[in-house]
């Protein structure tokens, strides 16, 4: 079974802030991590190959330093790693990103399954997985919480708003994974050291035959025109004193304001 996992290196969002002077994102000093949902995708892929045999190729688009994320993925059990990196990919929105990744997947070649995280932790759009599937012309099953593979069919349990949906899809299929799908393994020192010695293949736009007009800024129909810090104009009120009395005051307030 050939599996491709698409991952993204993201800044740890809990430490991202807006510079109040310039309204730009402060990225310096913010640690980079593998997008948490992508770890679930990696885990799922590695488990399947452990069961059925085959190969997991981990793929990422990003600057040269994204190699670190790919090595971590190899430490978790991925067999091969590909980084697509080119200056002309910079400023890609979700459409351009899915174009570049689908071009790289075509270059990788045969696959039965593609896994991704449900969305990236920084952008939170969840638009790239369907974008990749569309550009490859294969079905997609998003928000997967469980998976069984039988022959050429994938039976996927999806996590929806207030229900689970079990979907059967013909392979090849792209599956995006939610956090609760599994518990990603934490590689030990040995695995990490071994991954350091492995090769990471680096491809530029020419290697994957990506058209410049469909990458980066030129290939992106959306444009961010402004970033700013969210306003939290809350003047909170704290009730202090006997807990039971506070509770009564609060309830009266909520009823008075017709909130309950």
């Amino acid at each position: 079974m050939n599996i491709i996992v698409c991952i993204k290196q993201v800044p740890d969002t809990s430490e991202v802030r807006i510079d109040p002077e310039t309204n730009t994102i402060i990225r310096e000093g913010v640690p980079s991590i593998i997008n948490p949902f992508d770890e679930n995708a990696i885990e799922q892929a590695v488990q399947l190959v452990e069961e059925f045999g085959g190969k997991v190729t981990v793929l990422s688009m990003g600057p040269p330093q994204a190699e670190a994320a790919l090595r971590e993925a190899m430490a978790m059990g991925c067999d091969e790693a590909v980084l697509v990196s080119d200056r002309c990919f910079a400023a890609s929105d979700t459409l351009a990103t899915s174009y570049v990744l689908s071009a790289a997947i075509r270059r990788i070649g045969e696959y039965d399954l593609i896994f991704t995280g449900k969305q990236a932790f920084d952008g939170d759009t969840a638009q790239v997985p369907p974008g990749i599937a569309e550009q490859l012309g294969i079905p997609q099953v998003t928000f997967a919480i469980g998976l069984e593979v039988e022959g050429k069919k994938a039976r996927v349990r999806r996590l929806l708003e207030d229900e689970f949906e079990v979907v059967e899809a013909r392979m090849p299929v792209l599956i995006s994974c939610v956090k609760q799908m599994n518990d990603p393994r934490r590689p030990g020192i040995k695995a990490k050291l071994a991954a350091k010695k492995k090769e990471v293949t680096v491809w530029d736009s020419a290697c994957i035959e990506a058209k410049a007009c469909l990458c980066g800024f030129d290939g992106s129909p959306t444009r961010v025109v402004r970033t700013f810090a969210p306003t939290r104009d809350i003047e909170g009120e704290k009730f202090e004193g006997e807990p039971a009395e506070c509770a009564v005051t609060l309830v009266e307030r909520l009823i008075g304001e017709k909130i309950i």
Partner: peptide
């Protein structure tokens, strides 16, 4: 921006190459 809307909008936007903003 529900599980359905995010799944559908992304796929349609990718097909017609339209700009799409999430959530």
């Amino acid at each position: 921006a529900t599980t359905m809307g995010r799944d559908l909008a992304s796929r349609v936007a990718a097909r017609i190459k339209a700009g799409l903003t999430a959530d």
